[in-house]
Design a protein around this nucleic acid. Structure first.
Lengths: 143, 143
DNA sequence: ATACTATTGATATTCATTGACATCAGTCAG
DNA sequence: CTGACTGATGTCAATGAATATCAATAGTAT
């Protein structure tokens, strides 16, 4: 079926592209860097080049299949576009990412853009913090 | 006076640091990359190393004198901390950056962090869009 | 099956950023 | 004011993410 999805957005249904799509669909952590994807594919015995992973992810992004996020601290992570829009909560310590949706915030953002006369195209909201389990760990370590 | 400011945060009042602070205070565009700062200093005839610029900016960030932002598209920009906290509205087309503050959003963010049990350390909100003057330009060009 | 073209993989390369280290400049005691 | 201690600097090398190059290869439509 993905075969068709790819063709629909103007991309040939090649092996690496299918593999990457499949990986993004099945993997538990929905937010992966290009490097992550590359390593995971190698682990699974699929032999794709790193350059291909970058290329394909970028193409997927242009095609609207995935979103790219720039979390603080360097490299970007990709996420399969499925389900509704949401923002992200990132743990500074373990890097865990959680998703949330706050209608009030979404609404306010539009109001702000409007107030300034901007035609809003996109927005990104990241909240950084220490997740509950890291907080617990920290307490145990401090002593 | 900056002399004192630096000592207050535990940094020696060295020439490069003073130059960089002064630059950040006087420059018209409040959002500069490390590279920008470096080039500007060279233009002004001040001979500092690029590594120093990075180091100093990072130290300033830790000291709370500046904030670092990761706008989409790679490198980070720094901004002098003066006045209140605010978020950013970035024009996709001309790159202009405007600042705004929305209490409602700020408040909601804290609530979200709390709901998930996170100890919030930071957050970043960027709204991307087309600014009024670019919209006007576009209309004139389309024809 | 064939031929055409987009895609791939390996590698080299760019670009931003950081590390290493010998030299230099601020600071503070005398 | 001077010296001496220590942190800060500049140069240059090194990293790491991401992109460009390009010959070889795989999809696709005929």
């Amino acid at each position: 079926m993905n075969n068709q999805d790819l063709k629909k957005v103007g991309l040939k249904a090649t092996l690496p592209r299918l593999k990457i799509l499949e990986l993004l669909e099945t993997v538990e952590s929905r937010h992966m860097s290009a490097e992550d994807v590359y390593k995971k594919l190698l682990e699974m015995g699929d032999d794709v080049g790193l350059a291909t992973v970058y290329r394909v992810l970028t193409q997927f992004e242009s095609a609207g299949l995935v979103s790219r996020h720039h979390f603080d601290g360097g490299h970007s992570v990709f996420e399969l576009n499925q389900g509704a829009h949401h923002d992200h909560l990132v743990c500074d310590q373990c890097g865990k990412v959680e998703e949330f949706l706050e209608e009030t915030i979404e609404h306010c953002q539009h109001k702000v853009a409007e107030k300034f006369g901007y035609k809003m195209t996109d927005h990104s909201l990241y909240i950084y913090g220490i997740c509950p389990s890291c907080q617990k760990e920290n307490k145990e370590t401090d002593s």
